[in-house]
Write a protein that binds this DNA or RNA. Sequence first.
DNA 1: TGAGGTTATTGAATCGTTTTAAGAACGGGA
DNA 2: TCCCGTTCTTAAAACGATTCAATAACCTCA
Lengths: 334, 334
Amino acid sequence: MSASVKDVAALAGVSVGTVSNVMNRPEKVSASVSVRVQAAIDQLGFVRNDAARQLRAGHSSTIGLVVLDVRNPFFTDVARGAEDRAAEGGFSVILGNSDEKTDREATYLELFEVQRVHGVLISPLGDITARLRQLRDRGIPAVLVDRTSADTSFSSVSVDDIDGGTLAVEHLIAQGRRRIAFIGGPMEIQQVADRLEGARAAVAGHPDVSLEVITIDALSVLAGRAAGTRLVSRLAQDRPDAIFAANDMVAMGVLQALMMQGANVRVPEQIALIGYDDIDFASAAVVPLSSIRQPSALIGQTAVEILLEEAADPTRPPRQVVFQPELVVRESTA
Amino acid sequence: MSASVKDVAALAGVSVGTVSNVMNRPEKVSASVSVRVQAAIDQLGFVRNDAARQLRAGHSSTIGLVVLDVRNPFFTDVARGAEDRAAEGGFSVILGNSDEKTDREATYLELFEVQRVHGVLISPLGDITARLRQLRDRGIPAVLVDRTSADTSFSSVSVDDIDGGTLAVEHLIAQGRRRIAFIGGPMEIQQVADRLEGARAAVAGHPDVSLEVITIDALSVLAGRAAGTRLVSRLAQDRPDAIFAANDMVAMGVLQALMMQGANVRVPEQIALIGYDDIDFASAAVVPLSSIRQPSALIGQTAVEILLEEAADPTRPPRQVVFQPELVVRESTA
DNA sequence: TGAGGTTATTGAATCGTTTTAAGAACGGGA
DNA sequence: TCCCGTTCTTAAAACGATTCAATAACCTCA
């Protein structure tokens, strides 16, 4: 059906070894032969069969990436950073969306394993170090993304969510707020727990500041709005004067509830609001949202970099890279 | 590094052919041998090398999917439908995000070609039938998604956007609206042009209904809000009494502008609003948004189905499947 | 002219799985 | 006991690119 190196070699009047050299080590081939072979390749429309190449090489030139949610702009940015860095090294990234479901996560890891990918980047759902260890035993290194490894036997690239939480709440306090509410959950999500911990740390230094924790069961607009609605149904003096939402989706929901017909809470005058992730929507909200920005593309790039190093030298000790988040101030807290 | 069929065969005391049979045609193998082989597989942690399998088979058991924008919930739903249907047939889907950039699109097609994917699903950027024909010549069939093929030499699965536009505007008219505005653009996007055409068709039957077209240069929340802001700055009697936005993102932006502090337009009392796509956010908006729903997962499923048929029998004539969109009424027009 | 050194090219082996034709084992019937 | 038909298993040949040791071609200098 499609042409193989053999066909190219025959047409160009050289051996298959030479054809391979033309493609992979051009410096080993004389100019005249190189031209002839290239002509044959073009004429036949030859395209390398990656399966054969992989089989010989022992592993593919593909990197597998599993994210928690492709719809989340944070992860698409991570993916983009990873793709760009991978392309530089001649690798491509195949993207899997676990959608926060363990069975989907497992399916992708299986796919990557039979495909003998060069390595795996994963923003894991639960504790999958056992599975990753298995992969590593079979020659497939893994780097955790947006998650510090439970043990330190795997490299990871993440953002300091504790620090992010502190940043957010310190900003609220600096704006003169004293009754702060944290809205987020479920607490099983490490990132949520960390952001809350950071918030607590910020409050700890200020005896006159209180922190109320409002738990929700999903990081969604709907859950955020429900929580917001419950807040505005309180007497005005029982409401917080600032809200730190665990991510921007939740913040959007809260914002909607606050601005509702009946509620008419003014943001930020009566209640200030800050989110997390700095997604596109955040700046496009009715009241542009303050948020905590993570260097998403950089996370992807760095993860690929570490992965390639470990693939090249499996004895390299694992590294934990932690980036610092950044405060983005907009009208919702100004 | 990792165990091969040979190792399994040696451990189980059978030939490699038998090991292969255990995995691929269990009915050809006696129960006792099957058990022994399975035990050896488990003990060694054997995982099939897909590259070798592919090499032998001539093509992989993977389907490539290129979408315009992974962040768009419509496409993630399409992808989900495709994955599910593919999994039933023992195939997996690898997802590429062209992000509306031709070079990214080309890169993915190249990747799919060297990987000898079983077939390609693509929601194309421009006219890529020439490239797809090339792929088909090399044994890789393709199905267009969310786009009717320019020529009919490729199968396609899409939704009738003209019909969707008609549905939306007929609904507004049925609600007693007479001064309708369409907000959308750029008109180069086929889907936008079609939705407008459908809107025009609906208005055509009602001499007392007017349709104003407001062009924007991107289908984003921001562009929608800008257009909305311009609308509310008009005198009340010059405003439309209903708005049809080209998609839900735009509608969200328009909604924000209408509900703004200064504006205080009541939705739907003063202006009714309907969007397109029925994304999650639509039902979660401050005023839940009426919208036109597309059977996204079904599109993905159907596309895979057609693709697999064509891969099995390349002589099959191409098919054009067009689904009907569905009106979802919520508070924004009720 | 020929030895020695360099560079360019070849051919065969290899990766791990699937497939198929051929062979072994077994049982039943004559 | 022997033959024949099943059923199960084996061994070897593919798939296509890469690699490496071996060979060929070429050039330089004595």
